[in-house]
Design a protein around this nucleic acid. Sequence first.
DNA 1: CTGAAAGCGCTAACAA
DNA 2: TTGTTAGCGCTTTCAG
Lengths: 338, 338
Amino acid sequence: MTTLAEVALRAGVTPATVSNVLRKRGKVGAATRQRVLDAVEFLGYRPHLTARALAEGSAPTLALMVTSIANPFYPEFALAAERAARKNGRFLIVCNTNEDPVISRAYLDQIAGTLSEGVLVMNSRIGFDDLHTTRARGTPVVLCMWERPDVSPGLPCVAVDFFAAGALAAQHLLDLGHTRIGAIIGSQPEGVQAARYAGFCHTLKAAGVAHPAQEARFTRDAVQGGYEAACELLTEHTDLTAIFATNDLPALGAMHAAADRGMRIPDDLSVIGITDIQLARESRPGLSTVAVPTDAAATMAVELLEALIESGGHCETPMRIAPEPVLVQRASTGRVRS
Amino acid sequence: MTTLAEVALRAGVTPATVSNVLRKRGKVGAATRQRVLDAVEFLGYRPHLTARALAEGSAPTLALMVTSIANPFYPEFALAAERAARKNGRFLIVCNTNEDPVISRAYLDQIAGTLSEGVLVMNSRIGFDDLHTTRARGTPVVLCMWERPDVSPGLPCVAVDFFAAGALAAQHLLDLGHTRIGAIIGSQPEGVQAARYAGFCHTLKAAGVAHPAQEARFTRDAVQGGYEAACELLTEHTDLTAIFATNDLPALGAMHAAADRGMRIPDDLSVIGITDIQLARESRPGLSTVAVPTDAAATMAVELLEALIESGGHCETPMRIAPEPVLVQRASTGRVRS
DNA sequence: CTGAAAGCGCTAACAA
DNA sequence: TTGTTAGCGCTTTCAG
C-alpha cells in the first residue's frame, strides 16, 4: 500500500503538500504540483478512505435500511439512491433488517455516525424511537417514501402522496364504469399502506359508490398475500368487476387468482395496483398501476440527507414532497362489461 | 459522540483497558470490567468503526460489484451475501457498475483496500486486468458464480456448473419428447452464458437430436431480448415445440412472445430457463427452470473472501464449487403433442 | 507557497 | 491485571 508519506518522499515534499494538491486545496506551485502528480502516478497511490474519514470526522458512506433488498421494490430505489450518492463521492451500504427490530437497532448502533454519515430508512418496522435516538446522537436520518404528505412523521422525510395514488387508481376504475370494486390492502388497517386505501375509499365515496368493509382484505404485501385475498374476495363476492390493490405485488397475486379461476383479464375482471415495479411492466397482461416516483424520491432522499449532513443535522425536520404519482394504464384494466 | 477516552475517564481506567473489556481480549478484573461496562452503558458509548478500522488496518466491509442491483437476479444474491457477511460483523457496500468499465475501475480504485477489505464480483464486464491489479495491490477478490468449474479464471472464485444446468434443461425437454428445440442465449456466442448453451448442445447431440445454428439466437439477457428472439424463432421455425433459454429473463420473454402469438404454454410450446429467480416462481404459468444455488454460492463467496482476507490473500487461486443446479419443473413445460 | 506538528478514535505491543 | 507508548494514514491549522 502506498501512503501519502511515500508519495511525499518521492516528490521531495511533505505529506501536507501532497494532500493539498490532491484535495486541490491551498496554493501549490505548478512545478511542485507536477512533481507530486508524477509521484502519485508512478507509485499508483490511492488515498486511504478510512484514514481520510477518520481525519475528517465522517465517512463517505450512507446506509440504506430496507427490510429485504430482495423485495422487488427496493432494488430500483437502491439503484437510484446509489447513483445519487455517488455524485458526491459517497458509497451505499445496504442493511437488510429482515423486519427484525433487534437487527435494525444493531445496524443503527454500529453504523450510524461511525461507518456511515447518514441513514436512509425505507418504510419499515424500525421504531421511530430508535431513529430519534440515532438522530439525537448526531447522525442524520431520512425517512424515504413517507406515505402522508399531510402529516409530519417528526423526522426529515421524502413524502410521496400515496393517498393521491389510491385516489387515482379508484378514479381510473370509476372512469371505466366499475362500481363493484374489491380492495386488497398490503398491510394492516392502521399499517403503512393505510393512506393508499384511504385515498381509494375517499374517491369512491365522493362518487357515491358503495364499498362495504367486507369487500376489503388486509394481508401481506406479497404476491401470495394478494392471491389469497383475491381468492376470498372473488368467492364471496361474485359480482366484483374490479380489484384495487394497494401495491403491485398483491395486485399481481390477484391477477393470478383470477386466472386460476378461469377469469379473463380485463374482460371479466380489472386489476390495478400501485407503484409500478418492473414486474408490473413485465407481467402478462401488463399490470395497470399508479406509478410512484421511485427514482425521484431516492434522489431527493439522498440530497436531503446530504443537506442534513452538511448542515450538521440542524434543520426543521423538513419534508420534501416527491412528484405526484401518475396513472399507467396497461392491459389489466378495461371497461366494465354491461 | 462518546469516545473510548471518555469512558475510560469515567471508569477511572485507561483507554486500553476499556478496549480490552470491549474486545474481550486480555485479562481484566471483574470489578474493573463492571465499572467499565457501567460507564459504557451510562454514556451510551458506541465504538467508532472507522477509527477501529484504521487502527486494525482493515475495514469491516465487503464490496459487492454488480452491473445493476435492479437486475432481478442480484438482489437475491446480495441478500444472502449480506447475511453471510454480517455473521462476522461485516457490512456490504453495493457497487452498481452499470456495465461501465470506467465506473468499475473507479470503484475498485477507491474502495478496494481502503473502505472495504475485499471485493465480490458478479459476472460482469469488469476486466480481469483490473481485478488482477486490485489483487496485486493486496485486496482479495472473489469471482461469484463463475460459469465454468472446469476452467480456472485465474482468480479465486465460486463456480456454478452452468454447463450442467444447460444439460439438465435439455434433458428435461428431451424427456418430454421434444426434438425441435429453439435456443435463446442471453449473451454473445463467446459471452458469459456460453457454457450454458454448450451444455444444452452437448446433451442434444448425445441424444442424436439435431439443433441447427439457425435455431439459436444470441441476445440481451433481458425479458425484451428473449421476447424478440422468440418472435424470430417462432416465425422462422414454425415446427419448434420448445424453447430453451439460458436465463429466466429471456425465457419469460419467450413465454410472452408465445402468448402474443396465441400459443398456449405448455400445450403448444414448452419453455424452460435457468436460474430460478423469484419472477420464475411468480409468473403465469410458472416457469420451469434449472435452479442455481444462489444462496449457497453467495455464502460460499463471502466465506472464501473472508478466508482470503484472514490469510492475507495468499492462496492458490482456489475455486470453490457450489452445489449442482437442479431442475425445477413448473407449468411451462409439458410433453410434446403428437 | 511549503513544512512542521498535532490529532481524529482506536488497537496493540510491551512494561510495570 | 492494568498502564504506557506508539502508531494506523490522512487532514489541517499555523508557522516559516
